[in-house]
Computed example of a mutant assay.
Amino acid sequence: MRWGGDPREIVPQASGELVALAGEALKSLVLYGSAAGAGFRPERSDVNFAVVLDPLQFVDLQRIAQWWARWRRRRVAAPLVLSRAELEGARDVYPLELLDIRARHRTLAGAELFDGLAVSAEAVRMECEREAKGKLFRLRALYLELAGSARDLHELMLDSRKTFLHVMRGLLYLRNQPWTVHGTEIVHAFEREYACALPVLAALGEPDVTGAGTERFGAYLTEIETLAMITDRDASPPTAVSPAATRQA
């Protein structure tokens, strides 16, 4: 879907409507992701908002649902809606998602709640392990279903790569490395920091890469197995993680 207008106009218009409908319950409205930093592509990127409400009631969701019905055609993603207490409680469950917002966001209304949001290194490691191993198990099961289709295997690798880039960002964070959003750069930084080779993961970031045979998918699985082992073998978090590590590279 292509943009139905200039994103520089869409953001203030859409956010202005959100502020009006939330009223006094709005504690913070944040634009995050590529629309708040580098890497925005009008032909494929979405606009992402996080809305913190207190109190958060069902009627608020109903109003936001009506708002989104109007804006989803303009590549506005379904907003992240949560209460202040839920934001605090998410730090030990979804630290990677919160770190990503912290690295690339712009507060449009209300208080700045993400800049100083702290997460523990162990929570980051645990989510990395959970995501990497869970996706690995799922990949094996899906291979059994798709083994006869090179095209489907290629799409499976492209789709699952997003999760593993997320995991690698988290593991690099544990080594005080800058939080970067560029896929191939993440892979190369990870290879250097953790002394491993991930050529298939790196190559999948190239625009002209097509097709996937059984051997290539097998090599991809081997790389993911290596990544999964690193999450609990070599990713021991340091005693302190520098706040600068989440500044976008």
Results as ranks from 00 to 15, higher is better:
residue 1 M to W: 09
residue 6 D to L: 13
residue 7 P to L: 06
residue 8 R to W: 06
residue 14 A to P: 06
residue 14 A to T: 08
residue 15 S to D: 07
residue 18 L to H: 01
residue 20 A to I: 09
residue 21 L to H: 04
residue 21 L to V: 05
residue 22 A to C: 15
residue 23 G to W: 04
residue 24 E to A: 15
residue 28 S to K: 04
residue 29 L to K: 03
residue 30 V to D: 00
residue 30 V to Y: 02
residue 32 Y to P: 00
residue 33 G to I: 14
residue 35 A to M: 08
residue 36 A to R: 13
residue 37 G to I: 02
residue 38 A to Y: 11
residue 39 G to H: 14
residue 40 F to H: 13
residue 45 S to Q: 09
residue 46 D to T: 07
residue 46 D to N: 14
residue 47 V to E: 04
residue 48 N to F: 06
residue 48 N to A: 13
residue 48 N to Q: 09
residue 49 F to K: 11
residue 57 Q to N: 11
residue 59 V to L: 11
residue 60 D to L: 05
residue 61 L to P: 06
residue 67 W to I: 06
residue 72 R to E: 08
residue 73 R to K: 10
residue 78 A to N: 10
residue 79 P to K: 04
residue 80 L to C: 07
residue 87 L to H: 12
residue 90 A to Q: 13
residue 90 A to E: 10
residue 90 A to K: 05
residue 92 D to F: 07
residue 97 E to H: 01
residue 99 L to M: 13
residue 101 I to T: 02
residue 101 I to Q: 04
residue 102 R to K: 15
residue 105 H to M: 04
residue 109 A to S: 12
residue 110 G to A: 10
residue 110 G to W: 03
residue 112 E to T: 11
residue 112 E to Q: 12
residue 118 A to Y: 14
residue 119 V to F: 09
residue 121 A to L: 04
residue 130 R to F: 01
residue 131 E to L: 12
residue 131 E to I: 02
residue 136 L to R: 12
residue 139 L to V: 03
residue 140 R to G: 15
residue 142 L to H: 08
residue 145 E to C: 07
residue 146 L to F: 12
residue 146 L to V: 07
residue 147 A to I: 04
residue 147 A to H: 14
residue 147 A to K: 13
residue 148 G to I: 01
residue 148 G to D: 05
residue 150 A to C: 07
residue 151 R to S: 15
residue 152 D to P: 09
residue 152 D to I: 06
residue 153 L to Q: 03
residue 155 E to Q: 13
residue 157 M to G: 07
residue 157 M to E: 02
residue 157 M to N: 08
residue 158 L to Y: 05
residue 159 D to R: 15
residue 160 S to P: 02
residue 160 S to W: 03
residue 160 S to N: 10
residue 162 K to D: 04
residue 163 T to V: 12
residue 164 F to G: 05
residue 165 L to C: 10
residue 165 L to M: 13
residue 167 V to D: 02
residue 171 L to A: 11
residue 173 Y to Q: 10
residue 174 L to W: 01
residue 176 N to V: 04
residue 177 Q to K: 15
residue 178 P to L: 06
residue 179 W to I: 00
residue 180 T to S: 13
residue 182 H to V: 14
residue 186 I to R: 01
residue 186 I to W: 01
residue 189 A to S: 12
residue 189 A to W: 02
residue 191 E to D: 12
residue 191 E to Q: 15
residue 192 R to Q: 09
residue 193 E to W: 01
residue 193 E to M: 08
residue 196 C to M: 14
residue 198 L to K: 00
residue 200 V to H: 03
residue 201 L to N: 05
residue 203 A to S: 14
residue 205 G to N: 09
residue 209 V to T: 12
residue 210 T to K: 13
residue 212 A to M: 10
residue 216 R to M: 05
residue 218 G to E: 06
residue 218 G to T: 14
residue 220 Y to F: 15
residue 220 Y to W: 07
residue 221 L to E: 01
residue 222 T to W: 06
residue 222 T to S: 11
residue 224 I to D: 00
residue 229 M to A: 14
residue 229 M to I: 04
residue 232 D to K: 01
residue 233 R to N: 05
residue 233 R to K: 11
residue 236 S to D: 05
residue 236 S to R: 13
residue 237 P to N: 01
residue 244 A to K: 05
residue 244 A to W: 08
residue 245 A to F: 08
residue 245 A to N: 06
